[in-house]
């Protein structure tokens, strides 16, 4: 009893309070370090980019360098917009999703169904390796497969293939993880109603895990939206709006790269980046919301 009393009376409170304070301020400093880049980035994009944002920016194609130069030297807004990039990005994201989502979900179901089996483990490992392959390499592969042999030239299809390979492992993973979180009892409930196995998966497990699958898909899309390197080797870029998947096409990140290389177009870098950033941010927030709702 006395010993406890003695311990209680020992006065460490001063030192402890100091420690607590240091810890507290340390955390604040570290969080500031973490969030400051994003604040700096967003403010820079908004400050530099908002002037170019207008309806024209969304529906007109890119100006040529001469038009831009004239506008800049007169102190005017650069005419035209990035509609060719927006359409190209949309086209390739839709194509890539059309390839990656069905294959990714089916593979994820296969992994979920075959836990611990050799083929499943092998597939899972390969999928993980795929996730680690640098995107420029995927661009090269798609160049060899599609640009050289399928479309005989740079094309939206080639761009989509490289993006699809990039998206695939993310969808495989999220599908498997989502299915694993669904209680076994639900599967049993459906099987006990005499529902054949494949229908249990397609009509019970997939709908139940729908928001999880959607989250994975949205994150996958936001991941490929900003990819530039593989597109340089595959889609190449184009100054016109094109929906032909066998022809070269532009994309928002490709345009940012082109603007960067043209001293007259500097202003467009910021507005294009602002748009891209806004889309990615919205996709991220939406998928976080969906994920939070499931809990």
């Amino acid at each position: 009893m006395e010993a406890i009393q003695a311990l209680k009376n020992q006065d460490h409170s001063g030192r402890r309070q100091l420690k607590d304070k240091l810890f507290f301020y340390g955390i604040i400093v570290l969080s500031l370090v973490t969030i400051s880049p994003i604040i700096l980035i967003i403010s820079k994009l908004v400050v530099e980019g908002y002037r170019q944002i207008s309806l024209d920016f969304l529906i007109q194609t890119t100006p040529d360098t001469f038009e831009a130069m004239t506008a800049v030297s007169n102190g005017e807004k650069i005419p035209g917009g990035i509609a060719n990039g927006i359409v190209g990005t949309l086209l390739m994201v839709v194509l890539a999703s059309a390839m990656a989502i069905p294959i990714g979900i089916l593979t994820g179901i296969f992994l979920y169904e075959n836990q611990g089996k050799f083929m499943a483990n092998l597939t899972r490992n390969i999928s993980d390796i795929l996730q680690g392959i640098p995107s420029i390499v995927l661009g090269l592969i798609s160049y060899l497969w599609v640009v050289k042999h399928v479309t005989s030239g740079f094309s939206a299809l080639a761009g989509s293939v490289s993006l699809a390979i990039m998206m695939l492992p993310m969808i495989v993973r999220s599908t498997e993880e989502t299915l694993k979180m669904i209680p076994q009892t639900l599967k049993e409930a459906a099987l006990a109603l005499g529902v054949p196995y494949h229908k249990v998966i397609l009509r019970v497990l997939v709908p139940t895990g729908f928001s999880g699958l959607l989250t994975g898909i949205l994150l996958g899309i936001s991941r490929i939206l900003g990819e530039t390197a593989p597109l340089l080797l595959t889609a190449l870029g184009s100054s016109v709006i094109s929906l032909d998947i066998t022809k070269p096409t532009s994309a928002i990140p490709l345009l940012i790269w082109e603007f960067y290389n043209d001293p007259n177009m500097v202003d467009l870098i910021w507005s294009s980046s602002l748009l891209l950033m806004a889309i990615v941010l919205i996709l991220n927030i939406v998928s976080k919301q969906i994920a939070a709702k499931r809990k």
Partner: peptide, 12 residues
Amino acid sequence: GMVFQRPNPFPT
């Protein structure tokens, strides 16, 4: 028909 230990209605 089968009924389980824990109620398991389809949540969707």
